[in-house]
């Protein structure tokens, strides 16, 4: 990537890169160190010399609700993403194709900019009356308020790149517009659907705000569980570190898998190629 001829500039560039890599990776290393620190030393992040132990990992993965919370997080994120793709793809197609929708596409961002605090009270009241507090459905509904707009926005850019003549051709070939949409256009934006799905999944997986206020024992998600290690006895740093790592690793892996499409998607319909 860098082609410095001068060995001194090359050395500086390498040094700068190493510093950047260190700055990015250090927190992970530190959290990992915390996770293998004996509980008796917990709360002492300044200690660097200790005999490592897996007791925190055993405690969290075998003797706590965390696996159940992971399952909740996973189920909620998955259903949120599926609904978002199901509704977001046709919506994004309409925003991309039909006259009059062109300027309206930015209204999607407005939904995204609304502070969640505005929605939480009505949400809480509605879910309370529907007896859906502490249910996965309630959290999914809440997550849709920010995942669906993001997924829609994300996909508009991908649909914009598919030439209109492609669906025109399909309609001439004997298909209805809807058939053209799902037989020709959707397969053509498959990378976009995958990337949008992963992005939406991560957003839902990471959410603390709605999950904290709308879940209880039955539907608690992983971020809420992590926050739960801040107890009246202080922060249980070792166990929290384990849970943090479990929460972060899939996010890192997923983000890496879609990084190629990420910029394109975030640009949405705003960037013309």
């Amino acid at each position: 990537m860098f082609s410095f001829r001068n060995p001194i500039s090359r050395a500086f560039a390498t040094l700068a890169l190493l510093l950047a890599v260190f700055a990015v990776l250090f927190p992970f290393v530190w959290v990992f160190m915390e996770s293998i620190k004996p509980a008796s030393l917990g709360g002492r992040p300044d200690l660097w010399v200790f005999s490592p132990t897996w007791e925190n990992w055993n405690e969290v993965t075998l003797n706590s609700d965390v696996p159940f919370n992971i399952l909740n997080s996973f189920a909620i994120a998955l259903v949120t993403v599926l609904i978002s793709l199901l509704c977001g793809a046709p919506a994004a197609y309409a925003f991309s194709r039909f006259r009059g929708f062109e300027s309206a596409r930015y209204s999607i961002l407005a939904a995204e900019m609304m502070p969640p605090a505005i929605l939480i009270l009505p949400f809480f009241l509605v879910l309370y009356h529907l007896k859906l507090i502490d249910s996965q459905i309630g959290v999914i509904a809440a997550h849709l308020t920010f995942v669906l707009p993001v997924v829609t926005w994300f996909l508009i850019g991908f649909f914009d790149e598919v030439p209109r003549d492609l669906e025109n051709q399909a309609m001439i070939d004997g298909y209805t517009r809807f058939q053209a949409f799902y037989k020709v256009i959707l397969p053509a934006v498959r990378p976009g659907l995958g990337a949008a799905g992963v992005f939406g999944f991560v957003l839902s997986w990471n959410d603390l705000f709605y999950a904290l206020l709308l879940t209880g024992n039955e539907s608690r998600t992983l971020p809420v569980a992590i926050a739960g290690y801040w107890t009246f006895r202080g922060v249980e740093l070792g166990k929290m570190a384990v849970a943090i790592l479990i929460a972060v690793i899939p996010v890192l892996a997923l983000s890496h898998s879609i990084q190629k499409h990420l910029i394109r998607g975030i640009g949405g319909g705003a960037v013309k190629y």
Partner: peptide, 20 residues
């Protein structure tokens, strides 16, 4: 009528081949 009901075929400038 809709395009599909007209019994025509069309070749576009950019060919519009289904990429997948």
């Amino acid at each position: 009528l809709e395009p599909r009901e007209r019994d025509i075929a069309m070749v576009f400038q950019n060919y519009a081949l289904y990429p997948t």
